[in-house]
Computed example of a mutant assay.
Amino acid sequence: MTFQRDNAAFERWLRSQCKVVEADLAHKHDRMQKDAFTFLRATFFRWARRIEKLCPKLKDAPAVLSVGDTHIENYGTWRDAEGRLVWGINDFDEAAVIPYPFDLVRLATSARLAPKARSANRVTAATIIEGYREGLAKPGPSLLDEAESWMRPYVACSDEERRNFWHEVKDYPDAEPPSDVAAALRKNLPKGAELERFTSRRKGGGSLGRPRYVAIATWDGGQIVREAKALVPSAWDWAHGTKGKPRFLDLARGKFRAPDPHFEVSDRYIIRRIAPDQRKLDLGNRAAPRLRLDLLWAEGFDLGAVHAATRGAKAKIEHDLDLRKPDWLHIAAKTAAEDVQKDFEEWREVRLPWTPGVAAD
Rank of each mutant, 00 (worst) to 15 (best):
V169F: 00
A36C: 14
S149K: 12
I89K: 00
F39Y: 15
E318R: 01
A156V: 14
D6K: 01
H71K: 14
P101E: 07
F3W: 15
K170W: 04
P141W: 05
W87M: 13
F263G: 04
P177D: 05
L107R: 15
L14R: 10
A230M: 06
S110P: 10
C18D: 11
S234C: 10
A332M: 01
K138H: 12
H262V: 04
A183T: 03
I224V: 11
G222R: 11
E160H: 04
N285Q: 11
E349L: 02
F344E: 05
F3C: 09
A308H: 10
K28S: 14
P141G: 04
N188W: 00
R84W: 01
D320C: 12
W328K: 08
W47K: 13
I216M: 04
D277C: 01
G312C: 07
K138M: 06
A184G: 07
L303H: 09
K316T: 01
V105L: 03
L329N: 09
T127F: 09
G222Q: 08
L40A: 09
A305S: 15
A337E: 04
G83S: 09
D30C: 00
G76I: 05
F37C: 14
R122T: 12
C157V: 15
E338V: 06
Q4F: 03
A108H: 10
S66E: 09
R112H: 07
K138S: 08
H27N: 13
K280D: 15
N164A: 15
L231N: 05
S234N: 06
E52L: 01
Q4Y: 03
P56C: 00
P177R: 00
L208R: 15
L251D: 04
P276C: 02
W354R: 04
G221R: 07
N74C: 12
P99R: 12
E318P: 05
R247K: 11
E176S: 07
A308V: 10
L329C: 00
A126R: 11
A63F: 04
A126F: 07
A125M: 03
Q4G: 00
N7V: 07
A126Y: 05
F37E: 05
T2L: 11
G254I: 03
T199S: 07
S149W: 12
E299S: 10
F301M: 14
R84S: 12
R324Q: 02
E22R: 08
A287G: 01
